[in-house]
Write a protein that binds this DNA or RNA. Structure first.
Lengths: 124, 124
DNA sequence: CTTGAGCCTGTATCAACTACAGACCCTAGA
DNA sequence: TCTAGGGTCTGTAGTTGATACAGGCTCAAG
């Protein structure tokens, strides 16, 4: 399944341990054997993670997927909360980007000990 | 010093343990006593962290601050590397924001089990 | 004299993995 | 048949940047 999905082997076993993935059936010698349902579920997890959902959020989403009586509204709440987080992170990084690029732009980049970056970090 | 800087007490001691902050002199009873130089250094660390520098990067910057023969060029390299990281993170989050907001926009938000977000996560 | 606050050390916890160690097992080639 | 190499198994420790205790000492105010 690691090969099929591109997911790290250890990560799959980690997901199993924390209950994100179900315990798969085992061969006589104890080897895990996965089927299409497992692969599908892992892909769901990977796509969710790729969109920045935390494992707890993924757990919530999986619970809704498994539950036939789930509603679109329930999913929407999780997704919108996450979207809010993402937007806050972007705003924060943009602030950092602005400060940092402004400061670096004032660097001479030469062999002198005076440096705009150091000055900025030293001053309030 | 925690009050003076707004830094968490445990965090200051953590910085001391990992060598970011120097071991301060102690009173007879073992209480740490800090002076202006400590406060200044901690402020430097806090501002660096606020700009998203990792503690290892902060360590590097502090090394350069302490070193009289440091050059602007050396600092510039660290800052520009970090700026590249920050820009990459912004780009990544923007991609996520786009996908997520497009998908959430297709949510009906009603009590039906059909959900655009789940569909998007289930499909390749 | 007590009560509450502050400081001390040291260890455990968090997320989300990753990286081993040490033991099996299985297949292909000599 | 033997062996070399890869794969799998379990279980534990490490990563980053803190934060949260537990259990004990000290100190100032009332």
């Amino acid at each position: 399944m690691a090969r099929a999905t591109g997911c790290n082997l250890e990560t799959i076993r980690y997901y199993e341990k924390i209950g994100i993935m179900p315990d798969p059936p085992r061969s006589v010698k104890g080897y895990r054997s996965y089927d299409d349902a497992h692969v599908k579920r892992l892909n769901f997890v990977m796509r969710s993670r790729d969109l920045g959902f935390s494992l707890e959020e993924v757990r919530g989403l999986l619970g809704l997927v498994d539950d036939q009586s789930r509603t679109c509204a329930e999913v929407q709440v999780i997704a919108e909360d996450h979207l809010t987080d993402v937007r806050a992170k972007i705003a924060d990084l943009k602030r950092i980007e602005r400060v940092l690029s402004d400061t670096v732009a004032r660097c001479t980049g030469d062999a002198a000990p005076e440096c705009a970056v150091i000055d900025a970090l030293l001053e309030a």
